[in-house]
Amino acid sequence: MFVLQAQGLTKIYGSRGQVATRAVDNLSLEVERGEFLGIMGPSGSGKTTLLNLLATIDQPTAGTVIIEGRNTATLRNDELALFRRRRLGFIFQDYNLLDSLTIRENIALPLVLDRRPPAAIRARVEEVARQLGLTGILDKYPYEVSGGQQQRTAAARAIVHEPAIVLADEPTGNLDSRSARDLMEVLTLLNQNGATIVMVTHDPFAASFCRRILFIRDGRIYSELRRGESRPAFFQRILDALALIGGETDESVAVGGA
């Protein structure tokens, strides 16, 4: 059973008369329930555009995105917002927490927007916080906690309403290596508990936590890796694959591997 299906996705930037850029070019992919999929590629390969298309934040020039059997192109704008709120979870590179809310309230936000009863919200937030080791800082504000804790809060917010799929855009991009490892372990745990995760990254260390990785180049799928063996071996294969893709090598390769 596929949670997400993308068929023939194409996104062209630029208007008539100018040079058009095909950020995503006739790309198809499928994500199964409970998968942990990584999407990798050099800068400018179109991976963030692809994620935005999957997230329904951006509209494809051609092709369809089907989530839980529903074609998102047929939804009106406000239906789409509601769909995004209920069925998708997001983790952003810059956390995107609201400074005006405590950690507890940030995690609760999707449930509040969905008008769940307060008692249920409280119980669910505490359950998620326990899972992610955030219990001690629930009543602090984002600026009072570390970047790693902020990103774990964002992860908690992304799964608190049990979405069909969690989309993560460079979640370790702003974190030091220690916090990055912590976060990836948290995501792995969430995945083992049943969350479906699609993560865009150019950090091979973060990617090595995924079960499957799609490599993208020039808006198309270039190759695919599945993790079978241990994580360190998988990490090595990712580095090899990246070397094969060429383009530019990211500075984070060195950092992530440390």
Binding site: L80, A81, L82, R85, L109, P110, L113
Partner: peptide, 15 residues
């Protein structure tokens, strides 16, 4: 920035 974040989390423009 604040409202943008809320939009990304799925609040419609009307809301």
């Amino acid at each position: 920035r604040y409202f943008q974040r809320l939009g990304q989390l799925g609040m419609s423009q009307k809301e």
